[in-house]
Amino acid sequence: MPGDNNGCIEVSNLRFSYAQDCVIKGCSFRVSRGVLCCLLGRNGSGKSTLLRLINGTLQPDSGQVTVDGIDVHSTQRAITGRKLGFVPQKHNHVFPYRVLDMVVMGRTPYLDIFSRPSREDYLIADKALDVMGIPHLRERSCAEISGGEEQLVLIARAITQEATYFLLDEPTSHLDFANQHMILTTIRRLVKEQKCAAVVAMHDPNLSLRFADHIVMLDNGTIMHEGPTDEVMTEDNLEQLYDIKVKVADVGGGGKCILPRSAAPSL
């Protein structure tokens, strides 16, 4: 494969429709290693669908997704499972597995159908728990831990996959203020330290502004704006995307904050 395809996720001219309904209408972008990319868009704009197309769990009508030069949709799951670590939004797991058992499931792409994780696999899982700072949860049941801890466990599972590219579907949507920042700080640290990449579907523009290197604004299945966070997160672009009046306020110390322009409701 051509060398310029290596070390990145390349989405080219992707189209997808549910039944008659066209949801993704020709998207192209690229996320290189070491970059945290946020997908922004309103409800139903196609963020989750796009994430699943990149993950290869949805089959596009046309276009392709390559990861390190490998076509995601024509490659065995066991191969793509070593590259892409998918972290679902809210898992509704039926069985309350032990946290360590849940994390070690990340080794599945490396195991054949009849084998089970070895000592080494459990060591890799333990290391992932350390990386996420949750070794104390090891023996707990997944039913007993909080939403934030659950997200950390699922990210640990993706680390156990030894994935280079993390796909996260609204990882902060069920979390409190502190946990939102904790999760994104962890993801950012992972991306920078391990030279990984992350594509994160997000609702909160403030969190995206703070943590993302790259922003893809998605509107009704097409890319409206795309580029480095500073260039894309402007008042005009945000107003166009969310269809409300927006002010990007300077809060000092280089920090910025996105606020709706309408006056706060009086009591």
């Binding site: 898992h91 797991h93 994780p117």
Partner: peptide, 20 residues
């Protein structure tokens, strides 16, 4: 039987974890 654990997470997660 170990793989049934992965399958029990649902189709999408199982596929993401490399299960056909």
């Amino acid at each position: 039987s170990w793989r049934v654990n992965v399958l029990s997470l649902g189709d999408e997660e199982a596929a993401s974890l490399g299960v056909n």
